[in-house]
Design a protein around this nucleic acid. Structure first.
Lengths: 240, 240
DNA sequence: CGTATTCTTGACCGTGCTCAAGTCCCGTGG
DNA sequence: CCACGGGACTTGAGCACGGTCAAGAATACG
């Protein structure tokens, strides 16, 4: 649960030991390969999950076979917490890279979290951040152009990865094909390719092995209207 | 809190009396006029709200002045619950019709809800349904055509209103201008108008004073891929 | 080294946008 | 009761962003 702790401790003042009971009660999965499913629509889920390494996605398959990615799940991200109440999943979750997660029976999870106000806050924070990411995604696909969408998502990924890895890097690992961006941003693969080319020509990014290099962050921020406040919520007050 | 109870009791077996403490501790607002703001981006919110009558919206204003509606809030819908943890709003909430709400200090809310497992479940359900609506909205604006989007939203509104009013009606009150649909569905007003006209010509809806009449629900469902399961979650298990 | 997948580029097309003019509706005041 | 004015809606014409189809290049992998 290191990545989870890394994320949460950025925003909430909490001791690493608080996570010990969760760590103890949970178990580590095998390593999944790309495209392996974890949760399928209609599944009855009775666990919560934390990603330890690799990327996964929440997505739905539409009638016409198209895949719409709802959210990217990075190390430290949680899913399945909804199963506290609702037991039938209404969307799928699959690995997109080699990936490993921890899981924990949701009853046990609730028991542990209820005993510790700090942990309660921590998981509220996790839920609220994911909601904020959902809202931002609505704006991204709803109100932005292709270029804006791609740049905005790249900056979000860069930021989210940085938080877990403990520092902003201008190299962004992208262990996914361009189809991933197409399905996440509601664009065609062809147009994703064109947009990457355009960004290279503009000099704001460069291709690097296994990812991209951010060459002109300021320009990217201006270009996409990226405002990272939704990822770095501040002003907390613990109510418990 | 009648509309809230009407919604929740559809899915959770809970007694009306359970809401009495909330009712007692909360207070009813004045009647707001269209476009009056309730919460603005950056506001520090310390209350939770329940809509008693009228419609409101969650929305953001983008750099270029465009308004993106994230969600429609109908009677019985809640907002501000996020302020349990995060105190700065990252989007706006305003009335779109004459509107009235109840509000309750969030500390008091938490105190009351914690004491009653059924209430805890009830508000989990509220949060999860709203999340499901957000996800569906991503798919709507991301993956559907103009006609599909409009029909899908009309069916969602019809369904949500029905749940509160205790029965499905083929007349759908639409107390909002077409600009509302434009900003919610990421389309231009002009195109909304064209799409309404097209739907009339197809014979699936008819204009009626103050709203529309649904003439061919089956066709609308087929047309938009509407699947109401996200609004009527079943299969609950209370963990508390 | 050969095959498959992913990426790139070109040409053409269509959905939905913009701009603009016109119509309808309703409230207000003469 | 009618004249006026403003907002909302409608309709037309032209345009642009991004989609589709298709062929070729690059990269990965067995």
């Amino acid at each position: 649960m290191n990545p989870l702790y890394a994320r949460i401790s950025q925003s909430i003042d909490i001791n690493r030991n608080a996570f010990a009971p969760l760590l103890e009660a949970s178990s580590l999965s095998a390593i999944l390969a790309p495209d392996e499913a974890i949760i399928l629509e209609g599944d009855t889920v009775r666990s919560m999950f934390v990603i330890e390494s690799g990327w996964a996605i929440r997505y739905r398959i539409l009638n016409d076979g198209r895949r719409q990615i709802l959210n990217v799940l990075l190390p430290g991200d949680c899913f399945g917490i909804r199963s506290i109440l609702k037991s039938e999943a209404d969307h799928n979750i699959s690995a997109v890279t080699d990936m490993q997660f921890r899981s924990l029976n949701v009853e046990a999870f609730v028991d542990i979290v209820k005993k510790d106000d700090k942990l309660t806050s921590a998981f509220w924070w996790v839920a609220l951040q994911e909601e904020a990411i959902f809202r931002e995604h609505i704006i991204r696909v709803g109100a932005r152009t292709a270029t804006e969408r791609l740049v905005h998502l790249l900056l979000e990924l860069n930021q989210r990865v940085s938080i877990v890895e403990g520092g902003v890097s201008d190299f962004l690992r992208l262990p996914v094909p361009q189809l991933f961006f197409a399905d996440a941003l509601s664009l065609s693969v062809v147009h994703i390719s064109r947009t990457f080319t355009k960004l290279k020509l503009m000099g704001v990014i460069e291709m690097a092995p296994g990812g991209i290099k951010i060459m002109d962050r300021e320009k990217m921020v201006a270009l996409s209207g990226f405002d990272d406040r939704y990822l770095n919520p501040t002003n907390f007050k613990l109510i418990a």
